[in-house]
Design a protein around this nucleic acid. Structure first.
Lengths: 149, 149
DNA sequence: CTAAAACCTCAACATTGGTTGAGGTAAAGT
DNA sequence: ACTTTACCTCAACCAATGTTGAGGTTTTAG
């Protein structure tokens, strides 16, 4: 090879990813990214690190924890870019999680729509109320209370 | 009124909301819920507290912080159920936030789809890459590097 | 060559959202 | 009545996700 794969300084990566240097140190300690060192012990990153960090940030948006991200990354090559196959596996995996998350939020939104309709003057028909309050089976209780709920 | 609005013990509320008693203490300390006390200094909650807690849990699902929730709650009556108007305001507000959040996730999902297509062998066309790496304008750089990225 | 900027390690701190436990009081079942 | 369960306060702790700072080294720009 005529170029080194590991030539980006930590500051450069930080700048290009829009994160702090300390965050990259942190990610490295957590095993999410990797570096080699130059003669003066400074970190040098493969350029693929930038995509790794972008992926971390993207995945965090999905509510995926750093630990989960690490587990996925552990199946990828540390320094080289992932193969197309690996990449596709990971991406479609995350897409599925994303779909689940979206549909959850949509369910919630629908619930809120129901609540807007009901004005929540009735606890019988409130989807939020009914979500968790499974123990409400203490008998109907005072009618007025239901309306005041 | 012939019934008291504040008659639920902390354990009862916890049970019906599916949270720990300590969580209710915590929420109360944070100003998210309120209680009166009986003769023996034990908390007694208005029944509307159950909906408050359900709302907290629902809003957390949306990625809304407790502090933001508190700010919304601060505009509601502490013990009574919110009026229909107040309730609708809050709900539709949260619905908007929810919509934003959903569309963000959908954008991300689309990005991933693009990535699956490209196999990310090209950093030119990778949406994840392009999301943050605005500083990539250092000239094209080695062609091979782009493919290895 | 020198000064500034960037980098190093390690430890402490910050924030969010709670949980756990000690030491004691109140309420409820039998 | 007595015992068990629930409750009280307060403080300490936990885990995730970083940030900040001290004290020292390396790289880079002029």
């Amino acid at each position: 090879m005529f170029f080194t794969m590991t030539h980006l300084s930590v500051g450069k990566v930080a700048q290009r990813c829009g994160v702090n240097v300390s965050t990259l140190h942190f990610y490295e300690k957590k095993g999410l990214i990797f570096s080699s060192r130059n003669a003066g012990n400074q970190r040098r990153y493969a350029s693929s690190t930038i995509r790794r960090v972008s992926l971390i940030k993207a995945a965090q948006q999905l509510g995926i924890s750093l630990e989960e991200i690490r587990q996925v990354f552990d199946q990828l090559p540390k320094f080289a870019a992932p193969s197309q196959h690996q990449w596709q596996l990971m991406a479609s995996n995350w897409q599925r999680q994303l779909e689940v998350r979206i549909s959850q939020l949509q369910t919630l939104k629908t619930s809120l729509t129901g609540c807007i309709g009901c004005g929540c003057l009735s606890m019988q028909s409130c989807p939020l109320y009914n979500a968790k309050d499974k123990l409400a089976a203490e008998g109907p209780g005072p009618v007025l209370l239901q309306r005041k709920y």
